[in-house]
């Protein structure tokens, strides 16, 4: 299974994602520059965190129109696997590949610390190695992660299993004090209806090795490998 990490001017988690795939997961990975018009045969596209195009206008708004995004959208429509982390999530929201939008954190603070997350849907290509309802710990680092969608959309997403992660306390309770940014329903990560596209604000790539003190993130990446290996799976290569 081959991975591609998209690089925009201002991406700053691209090397972390590349490192995890290459050194921890030990799978082929390539960088994809934002000016590229091809995805060079990858099986999964990762859109990493950072401040693409300085986050001018709105987070992800300008990156969404980069040349590579036409290919990403085509790949998405064919059922290709796409993971957006932090700014990558914001770009997928701006591109309309995922429902909703993000607003400035309610506290107006840039929040940089660990959070607990409850796995709300462990049946996606991105979460099948977690247990349903499992509580995990990922770091966050963002100023605009306050997820919003209107109540009707939230209801539909809930029914479709599109809410993948919620911020929670260590005991799994999704209380207000566990919410770092004011996100509606404590939502930290969502997927599309088809399940092939997921975005989340927390950073799984920053917690994949013992030396970093936390390995909760590696199961997200190895879920993709497991899913890719399932028999009767619809595998799409760019």
């Amino acid at each position: 299974m081959k991975f591609g990490v998209v690089v925009f001017p201002g991406s700053n988690c691209d090397a972390d994602c590349y490192h995890v795939i290459d050194q921890v997961l030990e799978h082929p990975v390539t960088y994809i520059w934002h000016q590229e018009k091809k995805l060079s045969g990858v099986d999964c596209v990762i859109i990493p965190g950072g401040f693409s195009y300085g986050d001018y206008l709105r987070t992800g708004a300008i990156a969404r129109f980069a040349p590579v995004m036409d290919e990403v959208i085509r790949f998405a429509e064919r059922g290709g696997l796409i993971l957006g982390i932090c700014n990558g999530f914001q770009i997928l929201l701006e591109a309309g590949l995922l429902p909703g939008a993000v607003l400035r954190n309610e506290s107006l603070q840039f929040r940089c610390h660990d959070v607990f997350l409850r796995v709300e849907n462990a049946a996606t290509p991105f979460t099948n190695r977690y247990r349903q309802g499992e509580v995990i710990r990922f770091p966050i680092a963002h100023g605009e992660g306050n997820y919003y969608a209107d109540p009707d959309s939230i209801k539909q997403m809930d029914e479709n299993g599109q809410i993948v992660f919620r911020y929670c306390l260590e005991n799994g309770e999704s209380a207000a004090q566990a919410n770092p940014n004011g996100a509606v329903g404590n939502i930290a990560g969502v997927c599309n209806k088809n399940g092939n596209i997921m975005g989340l604000m927390p950073h799984p790539e920053r917690c994949c090795e013992e030396i970093l003190g936390n390995t909760d993130g590696i199961l997200l990446f190895s879920s993709l490998l497991q899913w890719w290996g399932f028999p009767d799976q619809k595998r799409v290569t760019a």
């Binding site: 708004a61 129109f65 701006e94 939008a101 919003y148």
Partner: peptide
């Protein structure tokens, strides 16, 4: 398309 986000 760009200058505003109709969701918010």
């Amino acid at each position: 398309r760009l200058l505003s986000n109709p969701v918010i």
